[in-house]
Write a protein that binds this DNA or RNA. Structure first.
Lengths: 179, 179
DNA sequence: CTAAGATAGTCGCATCTGCAACTATCTAAA
DNA sequence: TTTAGATAGTTGCAGATGCGACTATCTTAG
């Protein structure tokens, strides 16, 4: 067991002028910090599923998730926009997924700059195996909340997302083209 | 104005076997994704304050925030633990802050492996200038929520943090030594 | 038709950050 | 006391990712 940090106060060492006299800010009540820390922690909790088990990193998972949810194939640019991930990151993720033959791409006859992406049979199999595991993990994380709290949480997240100009659902993005 | 993605559906291109037949997952309702995206976006919204204006990155800001909130000086390790940031990251942040003379360190006579860190006068001045700006930004981001929603949100965040074993407040960490 | 500007995707570069090894120091047990 | 193991902090290294330049292609204005 490591030395408890509570020992620090008892050590008698104290700098009278270490802190400020003005307003302070408790990092642990500061929402941006809390969101960052929580997102990092939740990602770490999930990484066991897609990272260790299937060798996928987050951008790769986002590509599969986008392709798996939509009925039609879509471009890398579309994935980049609606997941808010840089296009170079998506490009690398797609390359990796193609190397592993989880995703394939076909030329778009209407616009030869872009490619239509879709999962291969192998990719779909992985996707279908992965989804229930991720859902379970998500439920595990949310299991500390009541049904009402989960609803509240989803609602509040939605409001903040909306006020920051983030898309709400992929169907919205389909309909409006907003991103 | 860019070509709307809604055009994609109308293009007539459709892969009948692109999607899966099993359960799908809407990324935009998936809490881990939403948290990641929200944290990224909120950080970006704040970076204008501490990054562009004061040349601080996130680890450096976390060091100042921890030092500013506590009355007594503390070790780099303490900051690493309670902000959940890797000790090497904190080490580099402290080095940068010392170079800019925003933070200074003194040897701990009781344990010569560690150093006690505290802000310099210059660091405190920056901190006091920065805090109101960050508070304002946070309030801006939360302005889309009612008072009740903010309370709910804070409560829910706290519950999830607790269930993931994250500290709740720095005072808790002081008292219990838990981190 | 031509030219200018926009867009899709790729890639080199720089930065950030976690990991792990390393030094110095402390602690505990033989 | 001596020695093994733990801890604080630093640093080299590698992987991830954003930025910007680049090519190829499309669109639009003249």
């Amino acid at each position: 067991m490591p030395k408890a940090f509570s020992d620090q106060g008892a050590a008698g060492w104290r700098a009278d002028n270490a802190a400020t006299k003005g307003p302070r800010l408790d990092l642990f009540r500061f929402v941006p910090f809390r969101l960052n820390r929580l997102a990092t922690e939740v990602s770490a909790a999930l990484s066991g599923e897609y990272q260790e088990r299937y060798g996928l990193d987050i951008p790769e998972w986002r590509v599969l998730a986008t392709l798996g949810f939509r009925d039609d194939a879509c471009s890398a640019q579309y994935i980049a926009h609606c997941t808010r991930t840089h296009k170079s990151t998506i490009s690398r993720a797609v390359t990796a997924l193609m190397t592993r033959q989880l995703v394939e791409r076909v030329e778009n006859e209407d616009d030869r700059r872009e490619f239509r992406l879709r999962m291969t049979r192998k990719g779909k199999a992985l996707y279908e195996e992965l989804i229930p595991r991720l859902r379970r993990k998500e439920q595990e994380i949310l299991s500390c909340l009541s049904a009402q709290e989960r609803k509240d949480f989803a609602l509040v997240l939605g409001k903040i997302e909306k006020s920051l100009g983030l898309v709400q659902t992929s169907r919205d993005a389909d309909k409006t083209g907003a991103y």
